[in-house]
């Protein structure tokens, strides 16, 4: 009897959860677009996010899922397959049987540098996937604490760092990591003494920086913008071609020092190689169209992310663009 009670209450809970999810993210819209029967997307599309739920990539994908679902009239779900900095998901997508075009992977610039990893060289590169289009570019910045007294701008920082050791944190110490690359570039170009402390994630970097354990922070605009607007951090320069519209008053590194370095994170979508060309084209166009939806743009702007719609070959080039810089920095 009591068991029955427990079961009934579990069912009730299940129902209440379902009720709560009504109008939830990518709910299946009624498939009533007339005549859709056998045209390409007529069942659920899966976006495979190689990083954990709640991360920047994941939230971007979920916004995309909502927009894409509304456009295509099919259910679009996000699945998180984490592990090894994305390589568990990427390996599965490349080697598995996902040629029907119903599974789209998320890709970022880390994918490109995988084969250069000195400890764990990866077997795959851009030749093993067909990129569709980009979603976000997030340029990197150099931040200092608001109450920093040892240096106040990029010149005084470089002067200081030439004669004093500077600590930064990064997620790895080699060529695969953007922060370490910037540190190496500063050391090589200006003769600074920056040492890298490896940490587990961007939020650890932030904590150590705020606590004063590290001296400066290499972060992305979306990471630091709120703290910057609140007056908790100052930005010395941005590593972009031209000033971002989010922080138009911060100079680019080229304007500030005369030396050029462009560094950013880009993330977008890809298909495994086996997906036929017509589906690749269809999906690229669908993604680009979804990115024009006003609700999508609004949601993404709230996250402080710069939207980008580079697609196809140009996107592959964008992903590859930092490769040469990094190779030359690391010799």
């Amino acid at each position: 009897m009591k068991k029955m009670f427990a079961l009934v209450s579990a069912c009730a809970l299940a129902l209440s959860l379902t009720a709560c999810s009504g109008g939830g993210s990518a709910q299946a819209p009624n498939n009533n677009n007339a005549g859709k029967g056998d045209s390409f997307p007529n069942e659920t599309i899966t976006l495979v996010c190689p990083f954990s739920a709640g991360g920047g990539t994941d939230i971007g994908a979920r916004n995309m899922a909502t927009a894409l679902s509304a456009d295509l009239g099919v259910n679009v779900v996000v699945e998180n397959q984490t592990g090894s900095g994305g390589w568990v998901a990427w390996t599965d997508l490349i080697t598995g049987d996902y040629d029907d075009g119903y599974t789209i992977g998320l890709i970022n610039h880390n994918f490109v540098f995988g084969e250069l990893d000195p400890e764990n060289p990866r077997d795959y590169n851009l030749d093993d996937v067909q990129v569709l289009c980009n979603q976000v570019v997030d340029y990197d910045v150099l931040a200092i604490r608001a109450n920093e007294t040892r240096f106040t701008d990029i010149d005084s920082f470089i002067e200081y760092a030439k004669s004093n050791p500077i600590l930064i944190s990064a997620q790895a110490t080699g060529i695969t990591d953007g922060e370490s690359t910037k540190a190496e570039w500063f050391n090589k170009t200006f003769g600074t003494q920056i040492t890298v402390i490896p940490v587990d994630g961007a939020s650890d970097s932030r904590g150590m920086f705020l606590a004063g354990d590290t001296d400066i922070l290499f972060g992305s605009i979306s990471d630091v913008n709120t703290a910057y607007q609140n007056g908790e951090m100052k930005l010395l320069c941005q590593f972009a071609e031209e000033r971002s519209e989010f922080i138009p008053e911060v100079p680019t590194v080229e304007e500030a020092t005369g030396e050029k370095l462009v560094a950013f994170a880009a993330r977008g979508y890809f298909y495994p190689n086996g997906v036929p060309a017509d589906k690749v084209e269809f999906m690229t166009n669908a993604l680009l169209k979804s990115m024009e939806r006003s609700d999508y743009i609004e949601n993404m702007a709230a996250l402080g992310l710069e939207l980008d719609n580079t697609s196809g070959e140009a996107y592959a080039e964008l992903l590859n663009s930092q490769m040469e810089t990094r190779l030359s920095i690391w010799g």
Binding site: S52, G54, L210, T226
Partner: peptide, 24 residues
Amino acid sequence: LGIPGSPVTAILYGALLMHGLQPG
């Protein structure tokens, strides 16, 4: 501070961002 110390709080951090509540 926006410092999540565990997997749970890391997801909550994402949830805060998603709803436009930047920690700080």
